[in-house]
Design a binder for these strands. Structure first.
Lengths: 146, 146
DNA sequence: GCATGATACATACCATGATAATAAAAATGC
DNA sequence: GCATTTTTATTATCATGGTATGTATCATGC
């Protein structure tokens, strides 16, 4: 997250970066990107929270659901697709299991491996939440406040 | 933060959002924005961590430093300028005080109010860290990986 | 001029990101 | 074919975001 409510003015950036070779506009564009994305993430997080969910729980379900030809992923595969650490995946998995949104099955040949699949409830939850998720993103990209 | 390493394909987004009025390109642009900003934030956080700092500590110092005509801000004014909750500002203030980067002075007329100012060390720390900060942003905006 | 409410800041605790260390199973090598 | 290394997943602990609550001080109204 980027926490600055008011971005620095061009002049202010110049006074900071003046001695370096990077143009103030480039810096300002970067800060604008950070700020825009942070606000969007805030909105998305608030939306998920209203549904007793979180961005990570949502994406966890998505990566399983979007996999073609298969209806499950291993914990390691989920970790590969999500940009979070293994322990966070393990903990998120636990909460999703507790809520009955996914199932965990140990592999027959290699008992280190766990196959994670969506339950019908998990899939339903996903389809419930998706439209609002897309709407928030679309609103933001169209410059409107939802 | 946005955690998806590989953004969904256009087709995949369509399959999810097909029934709504938002175009898949708009959604994809939004996801791209989120992903780009998240990667940049990761780089910045790693940079700050290498300097025993954090994005928030840095911005905390910045908002004091950039204030014109004054060399201090109250805790409330800092909270207004940063998009974080009061308690987080209070805790960050404590760590900055412990590190000797800011001073805290109770107001003469209203003893609820604390005036926070940079110490010379705080200002020096800021000037040490700033160039690398701008460089990371500039690199990212120019599409280069640092 | 004292009770009541508002304001400024801090504390207590929860949620969720990280890294380091661990446990269990499989693969490897002599 | 057993010791060692690698792989998979988890547990333990820390850092830092949040909300709810608490404390001290100031402002207000009767």
């Amino acid at each position: 997250m980027f926490f600055l409510k008011d971005l620095p003015t061009r002049r202010m950036i110049e006074s900071y970066s003046g001695h370096y070779d990077t143009g103030p506009e480039t810096i300002r564009d970067g800060l604008t990107l950070l700020r825009r994305a942070s606000l969007l993430i805030r909105r998305l997080d608030a939306y998920f929270a209203r549904h007793g969910f979180s961005q990570l729980r949502f994406l966890f379900l998505i990566v399983i659901d979007r996999e073609e030809d298969r209806d499950s992923l291993t914990v390691g595969e989920i970790t590969e697709r999500l940009d979070v650490s293994g322990p966070v995946v393990a903990r998120t998995l636990r909460t999703l299991l507790d809520d009955g949104l996914v199932t965990k099955v140990t592999d027959k040949n290699d008992s280190r491996i766990r196959h994670i699949a969506l339950t019908p409830e998990g899939r339903e939850r996903l389809t419930t939440i998706l439209p609002g998720y897309f709407r928030i993103i679309a609103n933001e990209m169209e410059g409107e406040d939802p």
